[in-house]
Design a protein around this nucleic acid. Structure first.
Lengths: 183, 183
DNA sequence: CTTTATCTACCTATCGATAGATAGATAAAT
DNA sequence: ATTTATCTATCTATCGATAGGTAGATAAAG
């Protein structure tokens, strides 16, 4: 019994892949439609406007990320282990030369995105910041640590440069440096 | 006697402003043309294709950046002073919420850009890496320092996150941390 | 006369989006 | 059980807007 994946989910998944590769503005309904084997007009049935698609992409991404963060918490890791797992989440999103974290590319485009999409990006970052804050709260001292937003900026920048330069060098260096500050 | 700025330069300058705000894909010939008060078709006289405009934007940006780096060298700064000046160059490019380094936004879009533009971005980064290497060559020890590409990734990421989140927090943190590694 | 720089006018391709038709599933009414 | 109505998900066809790009006229400068 092979489960039939709902078209709506197929669309979201195809769109995310494309957006992560080339950005929101460079993706068209027709691109996504042909990926999943329907017509572009059918996408409007599920997502009336491109903005709606963008909003669902970014909120879905945030929710899945949030779930992964909770999974990390459930393992009751040390702060160092938590950060290590956090970095691994970003690492998974990086495919050199073709894909970065959805919110890395969207935040670079932020000023040309529909407002609700831009808001969704900030929400994603806020979730990350809050989680990192809670990790830091469990530490005796936060001296020398990267600030939460600083960690995110370092990882996002490392992803973008790694993808553009087609080498993991920048990402690996950032990951190592962040982790090194935890005892 | 007010100097008449050549139209070609006006076009480049207007285009750069727009690209830095919203990205390459989100900028049209008509946008740029209306900025400088001509018709979009006239831009094709100076830059036959959009790719040509992009190439000149990125090479011009690199050349000006390179010149600024040489100006820094002429002041014979200490490594720490050199890095400080380097960070200031990036700082100048950051206008919260509306503008980042041209190559920050272009590298995020890299996979959807004409090839010669993507190459130009890598050239820009290479110039930066080479210059940073020379600075590090003058140091007794490079232990603990950010690697050249790591510095660039940190600054680019900090710019993008700062612009998207509408706060300098990430950029200032990155600048401080990089500088702190120099004695 | 040629070159330079711009214009008007237009082209083709594509964009996001809408309208209307259709086929199949579901459900309620008779 | 049959009919009627509604819902779901897609299609075809088309819209107006805009994209990048081209052709040819024009006017000024050398």
């Amino acid at each position: 019994m092979s489960e039939t994946i709902p078209m709506r989910d197929q669309i979201l998944s195809a769109a995310e892949k494309r957006v992560r590769a080339v950005g929101f503005n460079a993706v068209s309904f027709r691109d996504v439609a042909s990926d999943v084997g329907i017509k572009s007009s059918s996408i409007h049935y599920h997502f009336p406007q491109k903005e709606d698609l963008g909003v669902h992409l970014v909120t879905g991404y945030r929710e899945r990320f949030q779930a992964r963060l909770q999974m990390i918490d459930r393992r009751s890791p040390s702060p160092r282990e938590a950060i290590q797992a956090f970095i691994l989440l970003y690492d998974e999103a990086l495919v050199i030369g073709s894909s970065v974290c959805l919110c890395a590319i969207l935040s670079a485009e932020a000023n040309s995105l529909p407002e609700r999409v831009a808001t969704g990006i900030r929400d994603f970052f806020t979730v990350n910041v809050d989680w990192l804050c809670k990790v830091h709260d469990r530490m005796d001292s936060t001296a020398g640590l990267f600030a939460p937003l600083e960690i995110i900026a370092a990882l996002e920048g490392a992803m973008i440069v790694s993808s553009a330069m087609k080498t993991r060098e920048a990402f690996d260096a950032a990951a190592k440096r962040i982790l090194a500050t935890y005892i």
